[in-house]
Structures are given as structure tokens and as C-alpha cells.
């Protein structure tokens, strides 16, 4: 029982990162109407910049800053593609474009980073923060959850209380109608892509040391992130954050259950399936009515 609890708590770091990535996915979807499959790949690019610079002897702090800047640049580059050529496309076309971009980024990333060639991922926040019911809570897990909560509060306040948030909500619904009333559509869109680029890069930097250290595995962390976003129905930041944390905890728990541990990677898929079935159930009821 104690082993299960320890594993559940160990899953909090991953869960916090999933939650934060999920909140970024909802942020991007709600504000620029894109289900962004490249988010984790953008963060991975930033993380590898950190790793490569650190391996080259650059101290950790400046290397982290450079990684964050790389995340912003990668996010803005994807944002430029989406706003320049696909601003008026429908949601499925935009999602398909980001899948294509993900494939391209992973291919280039694997080429540049040497595929399975081992890299040393520095642990940015190693150590224990506190003990809870006999279980160690790491600084990483508290930090990712704290960041997730902070980003969620900021996003909520931005959208509901500020003029910029009002413009972003208008932009997400009808980009051209928003531009026709003077909303600075391009600037705001690029700002959203840049912010999510930085946040996803930071999330990946925290979670990367616990993961398979190759570009593709880290880029595919978009799957649990989108599963978390789905729990929030791509609308609620809080439900997404909680969903992400739960996915991490369930993943952690399955790692110590014999026979289930080899399937822990399937947890997000099962959650996506369960949420989709739940939504379908509502649709069928409506139709029958």
C-alpha cells in the first residue's frame, strides 16, 4: 500500500507537467483555435538547446534562459505558419497541419540530436521539498503543480478581466471579424504562440530527466497533454490541470502494479477513449430525444 502511495506521489511531477502542457494546449485552442500537436515538440526543442549548451560547458542558468528563448522562437515560428497561411482554415485542417509540422520537427530533431544518442539531462530542481504521510514530495513535483496553478490563474484572469483577454476571445472565434474591428490579430496570435512556447519548454525541462532522453519520446508527451485538455473539454483550465495531475498519478500507480506496469504508457490513450465515449453517450441521448 505504501509502495502504491509512493508511486502515486512520484507521478505528481509528470502529472504536473502534463497538466501544465494541457493548460497550454487549452490556452492555444481557446485563443487561436488550434489543437496544437507540436506543443511538446516545441518544448523539446527548447530543452535540447539547454542540454546541448550545458554539455558544451555553459552554466545551467544561462543555458535554461537560452532554452526558453529557443522555445519562444520555435513557438513563434509555428505561430507564423498558422496565422499567415491557415488563419481562416477550419479546426480540423489546422490540427492536421500541426500533425504534419510535428512529424517534420521530430525528423529534424532526431537528425540534429542524434536519435538515441544519450544526452545528460540536468535535473533543474533535484531534491526533496517535504515529507507527506511518510512519502517524499520532490521540489520538481511541487514546482510543476505550482506553475500549473499559477498559469491557470493567470490565464483565467487574462481572459475574463482584461481588454487583451476580451480581444483574444474575439480573435479565437472569428479572426477576420476581430481584425475588422481593429483587434491586433497577428500580434496577439504570435504573443500566444510565444508564451506557450516558453511555458512548454520549461515544463519539458523539468520532466525530461525522468523520461527517455530522445527527441521523439519527449515530443510525444503531447499525447497525455491533449488527454488532460480533453478532460477539461478544451475549455476549462482547472479541469485540464486536475486531469493532467490525475493522469500522472495513475501512470505512477500502474508502474508498481505487476502486469500493468508495462502498459503505463497506454494510460493517456485509455483516458482519451473514456472521455470520448462519455461525450458520445451525451450525443446519442440528444439524438434519441
Amino acid at each position: 500500500m505504501n509502495g502504491l502511495l509512493t508511486s502515486a506521489v512520484a507521478g505528481l511531477t509528470a502529472g504536473g507537467a502534463y497538466g501544465l502542457l494541457g493548460v497550454c494546449a487549452v490556452f492555444t485552442y481557446r485563443l487561436v483555435a488550434v489543437v496544437n500537436f507540436t506543443s511538446a515538440a516545441i518544448g523539446t526543442a527548447g530543452t535540447f538547446v539547454l542540454v546541448v549548451l550545458n554539455e558544451a560547458g555553459i552554466p545551467l542558468f544561462p543555458a535554461v534562459l537560452c532554452g526558453l528563448v529557443a522555445g519562444v522562437i520555435a513557438g513563434v515560428a509555428i505561430g507564423l505558419v498558422m496565422t499567415k497561411w491557415f488563419a481562416e482554415s477550419n479546426a480540423s485542417t489546422k490540427a492536421a497541419v500541426t500533425v504534419a509540422l510535428l512529424v517534420g520537427i521530430v525528423a529534424i530533431g532526431l537528425r540534429l540530436t542524434g536519435g538515441q544518442h544519450p544526452h545528460h539531462f540536468p535535473d533543474l530542481f533535484s531534491g526533496s521539498a517535504m515529507r507527506l504521510a511518510g512519502v517524499e514530495l520532490t521540489i520538481s513535483s511541487l514546482l510543476t503543480i505550482g506553475l500549473g496553478v499559477a498559469f491557470t490563474i493567470l490565464a483565467d484572469v487574462l481572459l475574463s478581466r482584461t481588454r487583451m483577454g476580451l480581444h483574444l476571445r474575439a480573435l479565437s472565434e472569428r479572426p477576420m471579424a476581430a481584425e475588422l474591428i481593429g483587434v491586433p490579430v497577428q500580434f496577439l496570435s504570435i504573443l500566444v504562440w510565444g508564451i506557450t512556447g516558453a511555458v512548454t519548454a520549461f515544463s519539458l525541462m523539468i520532466i525530461a530527466p525522468q523520461r527517455s532522453p530522445d527527441f521523439m519520446s519527449l515530443s510525444l508527451l503531447v499525447v497525455p497533454a491533449l488527454a488532460a485538455a480533453l478532460i477539461g473539454l478544451f475549455r476549462s483550465f482547472w479541469m485540464t490541470l486536475i486531469g493532467g495531475i490525475l493522469i500522472g498519478v495513475v501512470e505512477g500507480m500502474t508502474s508498481v502494479i505487476g502486469g500493468l506496469n508495462q502498459y503505463r504508457g497506454a494510460v493517456p490513450f485509455l483516458i482519451i477513449l473514456a472521455v470520448m465515449l462519455w461525450l458520445q453517450r451525451g450525443a446519442r441521448w440528444d439524438e434519441a430525444r
Binding site: R169, E173, A178, I181
Partner: peptide
Amino acid sequence: RTVFRQLTTNENLRAG
């Protein structure tokens, strides 16, 4: 009639 459907009447006006 390209209103922002998820915004209220007042928010639509404030946006412009």
C-alpha cells in the same frame, strides 16, 4: 451577422 457568439452583447461592443 458575424457576432462573436461566445461573448455577450456588451462584450461584443467593448471589443470594438
